[in-house]
Simulated assay, not measured.
Amino acid sequence: MPFFFLFQAPPTVHLFTRTAKADANIILTCLATGFYPKDIIMQIKRNGRVLTKEDGVETTDVRPNNDGTFQRKDHVEILKSDVSTYTCEVNHPATSLHVEEKWDHTPFENEGNAALIVGGVIVGVVFVAVAVTLIVLKLKTKRLGKICF
Results as ranks from 00 to 15, higher is better:
residue 47 N to I: 00
residue 16 F to A: 09
residue 119 G to A: 03
residue 68 G to A: 05
residue 80 K to R: 15
residue 87 T to Y: 04
residue 11 P to S: 14
residue 23 D to I: 15
residue 104 D to Y: 01
residue 15 L to G: 02
residue 44 I to Q: 07
residue 28 L to I: 05
residue 62 V to F: 07
residue 85 T to W: 03
residue 44 I to L: 15
residue 4 F to T: 06
residue 9 A to H: 11
residue 143 R to L: 09
residue 143 R to S: 09
residue 88 C to H: 01
residue 120 G to R: 01
residue 115 A to P: 06
residue 116 L to I: 06
residue 72 R to H: 05
residue 109 E to K: 13
residue 133 T to Y: 10
residue 34 G to H: 04
residue 64 P to I: 04
residue 15 L to M: 10
residue 46 R to A: 07
residue 7 F to S: 11
residue 103 W to T: 01
residue 62 V to S: 08
residue 113 N to I: 12
residue 91 N to H: 10
residue 42 M to R: 11
residue 145 G to M: 08
residue 122 I to H: 00
residue 89 E to C: 10
residue 53 K to T: 12
residue 30 C to N: 09
residue 104 D to G: 12
residue 54 E to H: 06
residue 56 G to N: 05
residue 143 R to H: 12
residue 88 C to K: 06
residue 145 G to L: 11
residue 97 L to G: 03
residue 30 C to Y: 00
residue 10 P to Y: 12
residue 116 L to G: 11
residue 19 T to L: 14
residue 47 N to P: 02
residue 63 R to Q: 15
residue 8 Q to E: 12
residue 95 T to C: 01
residue 54 E to P: 00
residue 104 D to V: 11
residue 95 T to S: 15
residue 26 I to W: 03
residue 48 G to Q: 05
residue 78 I to R: 00
residue 10 P to F: 12
residue 112 G to K: 12
residue 55 D to K: 06
residue 105 H to I: 06
residue 129 A to L: 07
residue 136 V to Q: 02
residue 76 V to P: 06
residue 95 T to D: 02
residue 81 S to R: 14
residue 50 V to E: 07
residue 73 K to T: 04
residue 71 Q to D: 05
residue 77 E to P: 07
residue 59 T to K: 06
residue 119 G to E: 04
residue 141 T to Y: 03
residue 2 P to Q: 05
residue 25 N to M: 10
residue 17 T to M: 10
residue 112 G to E: 10
residue 19 T to I: 12
residue 2 P to Y: 03
residue 51 L to Y: 02
residue 31 L to Q: 10
residue 32 A to N: 04
residue 133 T to L: 11
residue 34 G to M: 07
residue 117 I to F: 05
residue 93 P to T: 01
residue 84 S to F: 08
residue 19 T to M: 14
residue 131 A to W: 01
residue 136 V to A: 09
residue 95 T to I: 07
residue 115 A to E: 07
residue 47 N to F: 05
residue 45 K to P: 00
residue 16 F to S: 12
residue 29 T to H: 12
residue 105 H to G: 08
residue 52 T to R: 01
residue 119 G to W: 01
residue 138 K to D: 03
residue 144 L to A: 10
residue 110 N to K: 14
residue 110 N to L: 14
residue 44 I to T: 07
residue 126 V to P: 02
residue 44 I to K: 09
residue 99 V to A: 09
residue 25 N to A: 09
residue 19 T to Q: 15
residue 48 G to F: 04
residue 38 K to D: 13
residue 129 A to T: 08
residue 121 V to L: 08
residue 108 F to Y: 15
residue 79 L to I: 04
residue 63 R to K: 12
residue 55 D to A: 11
residue 134 L to E: 06
residue 89 E to D: 10
residue 106 T to A: 13
residue 113 N to K: 14
residue 110 N to E: 15
residue 49 R to W: 03
residue 112 G to I: 10
residue 98 H to D: 08
residue 26 I to F: 05
residue 149 F to C: 00
residue 132 V to I: 13
residue 28 L to P: 09
residue 78 I to D: 04
residue 14 H to F: 05
residue 115 A to I: 06
residue 84 S to H: 08
residue 149 F to H: 07
residue 104 D to E: 14
residue 90 V to G: 06
residue 119 G to M: 01
residue 82 D to N: 05
residue 46 R to N: 03
residue 62 V to R: 04
residue 136 V to S: 03
residue 126 V to T: 08
residue 82 D to L: 10
residue 45 K to I: 03
residue 42 M to A: 13
residue 7 F to N: 11
residue 105 H to W: 07
residue 108 F to N: 14
residue 122 I to N: 00
residue 122 I to D: 03
residue 117 I to T: 13
residue 37 P to C: 02
